[in-house]
Design a protein around this nucleic acid. Structure first.
Length: 595
RNA sequence: GCCGAUGUAGCUUAGUGGCAAAGCAGUGGUUUCGUAAACCAUCGACGGCAGUUCGAUUCUGCCCAUCGGCUCCA
């Protein structure tokens, strides 16, 4: 099994999985079985509903098959021939794929949608004509497949593992039947497999839902599913984050505003949310009139803009808002702080002249880069284009998309394009953060909007005293404060750097009689503007240290008779242990330097 | 919302068709202790609603929540 790329191995294992399924469940109908990051999966339809307990049996069957040293055989056949083959095998999903191949030359859903003219006819890709397709056979399993594959099952390693079963909609469409997806990990050798498993274990240890509870940052309750409760320590973290954010925005020429969370139906009708976002909104009645809780902050910002007359001299007008929004997300998507139903966007709406657009976008990109750097995150950028339920003409969308691209190019940022993933009012740039375990999270977004200014009849007065239509930019950098705190927690594994740590210094007196001096020490530290706790409880020193370490407090000061006598405190640093004795002023200076 | 799994005390876990077990945490004492768990005592739980049963935490159904995916998304 040499020189076979991992990709080939994973793909071939997907076929072996399918063969194993066919052996165990002869009636199986097969969907698709691609390679994914770290492994592979196959979507299947069988009568039995599989659970985790079924996986070892399937895995065993796969290993059996591999042992038999079966060759992978490739055949090029005409479309008609392929159709006959899969009809004979009773594989309706494969036949559906063949139909698409014939009609559009691809099985990629995005491309098909475009070619079918359902969205973005203007972007029009060309259909490639396909006359022949390749099929691969291994044992009794025949698959429509581009390949490539290993030559023989003897080229496959045993370093794979089936890990999950779940439902998955056929072709990713909610309206299609749900198939069963079996997912597996696969690596070149046992060592890589186990190191990946270790990495998963490490990620589990950093789970912000667990740390959030242990560190008393936040909680969730059945009484408000998806609505996070922030505890005192979580609030400290949050306030530090927000203060930092406010300072950076002041420096960058933003003004802060706050808009109501409850606004009337007529406003949401005007903004288009009523038509385009209703399924995600919460409603109520006040004095018999319909109101909605805001799912986005823009209409509020727009009303502020409209409340006075603006000259071209005032633009760009950068209006920032830490805005609390509520969105009724499907119950199945909720995930700790990463996905909640109420969250605070670090939003801003920038109103500007059309000439200012590229320059402003570049400024936002710069600010985003600066803020991410503060936390040591790297990131990649994606550009999302016009979605199915879009408002506004193709012309306007093209123009907006072009501006975003232009700014990205000028900033020399590479980007991936997500077709049809934009907001309903405009295309967007998304920033995806990479944490220390290599996982990515969507946070910042820049959305260019020519639609809302039109809907709300916004204008400014130009040089000649004439009314002109401004362009609007919606943007976030952290994305949501809640999600960002979740990411920070996992990134640091709960060991927040000194400037973010809810408690920076724990002061631990050894004996009862050391408490008065310890109290003085902690007061001095507090006066020096550090967050400190005095632990004057009954526990032994060892126990207090254990607790302080569990709480991941950056510094621990031990106060006993010796310290009291020498007026120097014994300093213990998180992860480092004892780092010596020093005066309080020296200690404070050291902390200051670390900030 | 869909597919699958799970739900015992604040946390981690044990267990049973017949009084639900423990460690940590908490509380009350004793101890005054020098760098990751002192000692004694004590409080505290079977997610909810039905059904089967003499009896249900245990079996069945429905609901709720959580976890892993799908779809969606900051």
């Amino acid at each position: 099994m040499k020189q076979n790329s991992l990709e080939k191995i994973r793909h071939s294992l997907a076929h072996i999985l399918a063969l194993a399924i066919k052996n165990l469940y002869p009636e199986a109908k097969f969907g698709v079985g691609p390679v994914i990051e770290n492994g592979f999966y196959y979507d299947i339809e069988i009568r039995k509903s599989l659970s985790l307990e079924d996986l070892p049996k399937i895995e065993k069957e796969m290993k059996n098959i591999i042992k038999q040293e079966i060759p992978f055989r490739k055949k090029i056949v005409s479309l008609d021939e392929a159709r006959r083959i899969f009809k004979g095998l009773k594989q309706p999903y494969k036949i559906e794929l063949l139909k698409d191949l014939e009609k559009y030359g691809t099985t990629e859903q995005d491309e098909i949608r475009q070619l079918a003219g359902k969205i973005n006819p203007s972007f029009g890709a060309k259909s490639k004509k396909i006359k022949k397709v390749s099929i691969y056979q291994v044992g009794d399993f025949v698959d429509l497949c581009r390949g490539p594959h290993v030559k023989n099952t003897r080229d496959l390693p045993s370093s794979f593992k089936l890990i999950k079963v779940s439902g998955a909609y056929w072709r990713g469409e909610e309206t299609n039947p749900m198939l069963q997806r079996i997912m597996g990990l696969a690596f070149l050798n046992e060592k890589e497999l186990s190191s990946y498993l270790a990495q998963i274990e490490e990620a589990e240890k950093r789970d912000h839902r667990v740390l959030g509870k242990n560190l008393e940052l936040f909680s969730f309750h059945d009484e408000g599913v998806g609505f996070p409760f922030f505890h005192p320590k979580g609030m400290i973290l949050r306030n530090i984050l927000e203060d930092y954010w406010k300072k950076e925005h002041q420096k960058s020429g933003y003004e802060e505003v706050k808009t109501p969370i409850l606004l009337s139906k007529s406003l949401w009708m005007q903004s288009g949310h009523w038509d385009h976002y209703k399924e995600n909104m919460y409603f109520t009645k006040i004095d018999n009139k319909d109101y909605a809780i805001k799912p986005m902050n823009c209409p509020g910002g727009i009303l502020i803009y409209k409340s006075s007359l603006h000259s071209y001299r005032d633009l760009p007008l950068r209006m920032a808002e830490l805005g609390l929004v509520h969105r009724h997300e499907l119950s199945g998507v909720l995930q700790g702080l990463f996905r909640v139903r109420s969250f605070t966007q670090d939003d801003a709406h920038i109103f500007m002249t059309p000439e200012q657009v590229t320059e402003e976008i570049k400024k936002v990109i710069d600010l985003t880069a600066r803020i991410y750097k503060k936390f040591g995150f790297s990131y990649h950028v994606e550009l999302s284009t016009k979605p199915k339920n879009a408002m506004g003409s193709d012309d306007v969308w093209q123009k907006a998309t072009k501006s975003l691209k232009q700014s990205l190019k000028e900033k020399k940022l590479d980007f991936i394009i997500n077709k049809g993933e934009g907001a309903f009012y405009g295309p967007k740039i998304d920033f995806h953060l990479k944490d220390c375990l290599g996982r990515t999270w969507q946070c910042g977004t820049i959305q260019l909007d020519f639609v809302m200014p039109e809907k709300f009849d916004l204008f400014y007065i130009d040089k000649k005293g004439k009314k002109q239509r401004p362009v609007m930019l919606h943007r976030t950098i952290l994305g949501s404060i809640e999600r960002f705190i979740g990411i920070l927690t996992e990134n640091y594994g709960g060991e927040f750097p000194l400037w973010l740590a809810p408690v920076q210094v724990a002061v631990l007196p050894i004996r009862e009689k050391n408490v008065p001096f310890a109290k003085k020490v902690s007061e001095t530290i507090r006066e020096n503007n550090f967050r400190t706790e005095l632990w004057s409880g009954e526990d032994t020193l060892s126990k207090k240290i254990k607790k302080a370490e569990e709480q991941k407090i950056p510094y621990i000061l031990v106060i006993g008779d010796q310290e009291e006598k020498s007026r120097k405190v014994a300093v213990r640093k998180r992860k480092k242990g004892d780092i010596g004795k020093m005066t309080i002023s020296k200690f404070s200076a050291m902390l200051l330097k670390e900030l």
